[in-house]
Design a protein around this nucleic acid. Structure first.
Lengths: 346, 346
DNA sequence: GTGAAAGCGCTAACAA
DNA sequence: TTGTTAGCGCTTTCAC
């Protein structure tokens, strides 16, 4: 890599000189403002091309206060995040949307509360216009921190507090869970267990609620808490089987846990779906299509949810900046629908 | 989220005023320069605390030309990236190192060559001090693009061209592959096949070379190309089995492909490892520990490799900035060792 | 050791 | 329509 880095980048001043106009005019052309006579504009554009001019973002940000950058903050006290493709998909959706609107994605990974101070400092430092926060656990202080830093925020997943102003995007966990159980019921299953997620995440709570909506008088013993890992799912399944030998259906709160459950079932010699039908949640394709048998599950469009988070935040920013492109839709949380995907396990 | 965003952030001027010093002195304290008398420094620090001052990065960058930010560019024409936890782990390593050195991680995802122009513009825009590039395929123009933008770069994985100046970090693919085959040989296996990766990636090429190093006169038919997906692995395995019914060992160029191979083996009623021993590559824990049986594989420390990429880049930047902290180690590509991890499949 | 002053490259009033 | 002129908030000589 040769040190072409030493060729000093041209400034607006340079291109103005070359085009024989003032810096202001050059700036107008570069920023696409109306009202520059065509021939002049053309000369400026040519100069830009010839010199390979690219605006210095720092200088621009200094005056406009717009950074055209959004932070994605991920609380990741556990390593779940890295075993679950969930996040990657969501980020991709976010990246898509941000890119389309010419915004940058700054990734802030935290490994624990120790890092929060750093994140707070960063957000307060005015590097970004807004933040997208994934706060996996109920007691998380990240959102509060962003608020304190005065950075507009959208949360991934329903937060556990209710506050009219908080913007978030989540899927219809409760409705999806209901569909899962209905599906099992429709298959004629009568003894249905639920492998729940840790109840410190609203998604887990909502899915459990959905289960209870449909099976209000299920034994409490039919509900076992997993931990969103395959192991957890496997253990929970074993417990369920020990307690209810006649179990004929299971709704697991995640595909990953369902994959663990499938494994236990196989080890115990239960056929799926003949003996026990299994429904997961998420539709993580790399998991659900690859279990044996492939998993029937509740699909949430993860990538789209990421996209929506970004879009919502950007709209919020536009609104704050006053106006922006036709403020039609209201600024409020988004809950996306889920969908039953039938494969072989139920 | 209340609009505390309207509270204007304090500037250096503000804290200088409050501390009763000049802006220059305040700046010195904030940046930890020597040579400010203790009592003054103390007053400044107090003002910083009281006002919650955080330096405006844009303003600072404008004069120092340091952005303290590094771009991570991922070429992702296929969606492999999202089914493979590989990347996430690498990013984590990068993030760790960057964070420790107070640098920011800007994520640039590309979905195809169309996006390259945007990335080029971004890099040239001087938003970042350097770039970490993951260029999965041989014909990728991303590295060239970064070079043109004059942005110091470190590549993830050995690039396919040789050029003394190019910095990269990779694991010892060839050596690891050799170890894999030796392990199989040590188990008494004599008919060993190789499920290779697409040969447009140097990692695949190197692993195949390693295989050939140890089994120089293996039938060409013993080498089948997969595509780094479970399906590809499954198909390749089927092909191998059809051609060589007496096959007793397989080295797959990735854990993900190995998992597919395992599936085929199970379907065909071959016991693993009794009938056919299988060795993977990568040691993606969420895959290797969860196959049935758990996978013996070649481990590369993915997270550490990410960390090394970041460290190498940062050192390169320091060097360019002249001096920096004790330039001991030379600036050259890094190849990390691999390690055999024995589980149950071989 | 500390302060005054000169910009970094850009945008946005305001004049012309 | 175009140019002139102030800064945005910070670092950094250069005097004192």
């Amino acid at each position: 890599m040769s040190d072409s880095s030493y060729a000093p980048r041209p400034t607006l001043e340079d291109i103005a000189a070359r085009a024989g106009v003032s810096r202001a005019t050059a700036s107008r052309v570069v920023n696409g403002s109306e009202g520059v006579r065509a021939p002049l504009a053309e000369r400026v554009r040519q100069a830009v091309d010839e010199l390979g001019y690219v605006p210095n973002q720092a200088a621009r940000a200094l005056v406009t206060r717009r950074k055209d950058a959004v932070a994605v903050v991920v609380a990741e006290p556990e390593t779940r995040f890295f075993s679950d493709p969930f996040f990657a998909q969501q980020v991709r959706g976010i990246s898509r949307e941000l890119t389309a609107r010419d915004n940058q994605l700054v990734l802030l990974l935290t490994e624990g509360a120790d890092d929060y101070e750093r994140v707070g400092r960063y957000l307060a430092g005015g590097h970004v216009d807004g933040a997208l926060i994934f706060s996996l656990h109920a007691d998380d202080t990240l959102p509060a921190l962003a608020e304190r830093a005065g950075v507009p925020t959208v949360i991934g997943g329903r937060p556990d507090w209710s506050d009219g102003d908080t913007l978030y995007v989540d899927c219809d966990n409760r409705g999806g869970a209901r569909d899962a159980v209905h599906h099992l019921l429709g298959l004629g299953r009568r003894r249905i267990g639920h492998i729940a997620g840790r109840q410190d995440q609203t998604a887990s709570v909502d899915r459990l609620d959905g289960f209870r909506d449909v099976a209000p008088d299920a034994d409490p013993g039919l509900i076992v808490e997993g931990d969103f890992t395959p192991d957890g799912g496997a253990r929970a399944m074993a417990e369920l089987l020990d307690r209810y030998p006649d179990l004929d259906g299971v709704f697991a709160a995640s595909d990953v846990m369902a994959s663990g459950a499938l494994r236990t079932l196989r080890q115990r010699g239960r056929r799926v779906p003949e003996d026990v039908a299994v429904v997961g949640f998420d539709d993580i394709v790399s998991v659900a299509e690859w279990t044996d048998p492939p998993l029937t599950t509740i699909r949430q469009d993860i990538e789209e949810m990421g996209q929506m988070m970004a879009r919502l935040l950007l709209r919020r920013l536009d609104a704050a900046a006053g106006g922006g492109p036709a403020d039609d839709a209201p600024l409020k949380p988004i809950v996306t629908p889920t969908q039953v995907v039938v494969r072989a396990s139920a």
